[in-house]
Design a protein around this nucleic acid. Structure first.
Lengths: 157, 157
DNA sequence: CGCAACAGTTGTGTTTTAGCAACTGTTGTA
DNA sequence: TACAACAGTTGCTAAAACACAACTGTTGCG
């Protein structure tokens, strides 16, 4: 095994440990929402939060679900009050789905909880350590490039 | 807003961006497995991979599921060939669940794919950058402490 | 206008997960 | 040995998600 391989291995280990920690952050932030919606339902809300109101067709393609499945899923999410069905007079055969206040809050709260949790984790570190971590995180995120939303949707985030 | 708050905010942003990237890594590593097992089923395999063979009761408690639900879930996972039911002569009322080769491979492959993906992301960085990231990741993971397995299970990882 | 294409919904059936209660077999113990 | 506690399975029921096909209403175009 070359020195490079050893280094690669240690990099991956460190990244995996960090990912474990960050996944924990995400998981905790989502667990509250998962007491009132299912994971597939939460996916819908996350997509809408990111993209704004979407047509059924677009939404269905975004989360990789057949129209019939989506239609009935939306039935349930509407009934629960997280989203609203809208029709624009211009195109009465298209149906627009948008978050209600409650739905918006559900997603926003999860994100805020994530930020709080991260701040809390780093609260005991020195300023130098914090800035080193921030720089490293920015560098890594940059190197990783854009993460396709559909990749993340597998985990409902 | 104080300078500290601004800094906290930037820390959280950087961490969130990094978490997005790392979540993408995890999600991609899992997506292959999710073509042959469901997420709850994969959770079972991950727990068994981490803890070794477990009794039904312990396993059920680990993933937060009632005995009846687990029993039937195991029926399906056994039928699919990912795990095996075992009985020790010493205690014939206890049932031990253990991964088969196929089940072990499924989990192991996901982990390996994760490491490969991370290595690939970092492959274009300089040695200095890599070591900075490794140090920062180690520091952050350390500050976060142990992430309870049950936290991670929400996401199936 | 008339008709094809489009956007969603509804009918029907299957699979998975989940919860409660009743049950079978096993173990430990009085 | 008899009986209670334990470990897991099975009966029953319900909610979600998914898939395929048939259907309704809307739009665009020849």
């Amino acid at each position: 095994m070359s020195t490079d391989d050893v280094f690669e291995s240690r990099s991956a280990d460190a990244a995996l440990a960090a990912s474990r920690a960050l996944m924990g952050v995400v998981a905790r932030s989502v667990s509250g929402a998962l007491e009132v919606v299912t994971l597939p339902q939460f996916r819908v809300l996350v997509v809408l939060d990111g993209a704004g109101p979407l047509r059924m067709g677009v939404l269905g393609e975004a989360i990789g679900v057949l129209p019939s499945t989506l239609s009935r899923a939306i039935d349930r999410i509407v009934a629960a009050g997280w989203v609203r069905r809208t029709t624009k007079p211009a195109n009465r055969r298209e149906v627009l789905i948008e978050l209600t206040m409650a739905g918006q809050n559900l997603v926003t709260n999860a994100l805020e909880q994530r930020r709080d949790n991260i701040a809390q984790i780093m609260s005991d570190l020195s300023a130098d350590q914090k800035s080193a971590i921030v720089a490293a995180f920015e560098l890594f995120a940059d190197a990783a490039g854009e993460t396709p939303a559909e990749d993340l949707l597998v985990l409902g985030v």
